[in-house]
């Protein structure tokens, strides 16, 4: 059985799934990540699924579990790099990846984590008719 490597970069754990995972491999990853979060004290997890050509309900459920477990261990999880065909298929399948934050690529995922760990001020989402102001 293949094992998915977990890399530590600063305050973040990076997982890049490169193989077509057996269900056991996915469950092993879930265990490994929980251990590594506790062992390293990292506050962010990025799971890169750019190389995955499908995400079925089992992988989807595992990703949701990882996000939930990380949350309990005080780490945020971002899933990055989902392919368009995979996203379209998930919508059709009816899988919404509840509780998972997503970003287009690793870089955006890092930004998202950084902002999440920032000052934590809630964003005033009043949106509408404000003038477009130049932001520094």
């Amino acid at each position: 059985m293949d094992r998915v490597p977990v890399l530590k970069i600063g305050d973040t754990l990076l997982v890049s799934i490169q193989v077509d995972m057996e269900d056991q491999t996915a469950l092993q990853l879930q265990d490994d990540l929980a251990e590594r979060i506790v062992a390293t004290g990292c506050h962010g997890v990025i799971i890169d699924i750019t190389a995955l050509d499908i995400v079925d309900s089992f992988v989807g459920r595992t990703l949701s579990s990882i996000a939930a477990i990380s949350k309990v261990l005080d780490a945020d999880t971002v899933v990055v790099g989902m392919r368009p065909a995979v996203a379209i298929t998930l919508v059709e399948l009816g899988l919404s990846l509840q509780g998972i934050r997503t970003a287009l690529n690793v870089e955006r995922g890092m930004e998202l984590l950084a902002r999440g760990r920032g000052d934590g001020l809630p964003l005033p989402f009043d949106s509408d008719e404000d003038e477009l102001t130049a932001t520094p």
Partner: peptide
Amino acid sequence: RTVAVAIKLSLVDQTKLVTAASELAR
């Protein structure tokens, strides 16, 4: 996937079929 690629299903259709096969095989 090999068969779906061989008969030139579109990328989205390949993905849908392989995903369905994965669910049913499990």
